[in-house]
């Protein structure tokens, strides 16, 4: 199987990343929490989450982090290398939400021998912005 690569020369500042939609289920939320060894009840126990005033169980930060990495390297292909990521969590993401992932290249630059792009991205859910952040990736060159 051939894997696609996004090359640094082909990127323009302002370029948008493909929009990705993901249906979030209880299973998505619980699988993400357990895969990240996060057993905090608010990420798997609906009754507990409701008892502290949350609507239901919600996605943990590690899953948002994992999805951020996935969204960015799904775009670059496996030759893209994530160097840095930084995000702020807003509205919680609940089961039944459709998460919409969008992004944009904000800067193209070089550092030592690395060819880098800075991407601003967002994950939106029906309740609002779940995550807004930036990522820096090193890309291959032609």
């Amino acid at each position: 199987m051939a894997w696609k690569s996004v090359y640094w020369e082909d990127i323009e500042e302002g370029q948008e990343l493909p929009t990705v939609s993901m249906d979030i289920t209880c299973t998505t939320i619980v699988a993400g929490a357990i895969a990240s060894s996060d057993f905090t009840p608010v990420h798997h126990d609906s009754n507990f989450a409701k008892s502290i005033g949350m609507q239901d169980i919600f996605m943990n930060n590690a899953t948002i982090c994992g999805l951020s990495g996935r969204y960015l390297t799904d775009w670059t292909g496996p030759e893209g290398e994530l160097k840095e990521i930084s995000f702020r969590i807003g509205t919680s993401c609940f089961a039944g939400d459709t998460m919409t992932m969008t992004g944009k290249v904000v800067k193209k630059h070089t550092e030592a021998d690395q060819h880098l792009v800075d991407v601003a991205y967002e994950f939106n859910v029906p309740g609002g912005r779940n995550c807004g952040g930036t990522g820096t990736l090193a890309l291959p060159t032609r």
Binding site: W3, M22, A31, I34, A35, S36, L67, D74, P78
Partner: peptide, 24 residues
């Protein structure tokens, strides 16, 4: 593998032995 399944991350660097061997 559990992490990639939860995140639906198909990057072959993480789970494809054959690809990983030929990677950087």
């Amino acid at each position: 593998r559990h992490w990639c399944a939860a995140m639906q991350d198909g990057n072959p660097l993480y789970t494809n032995e054959e690809y990983a061997k030929t990677s950087r």
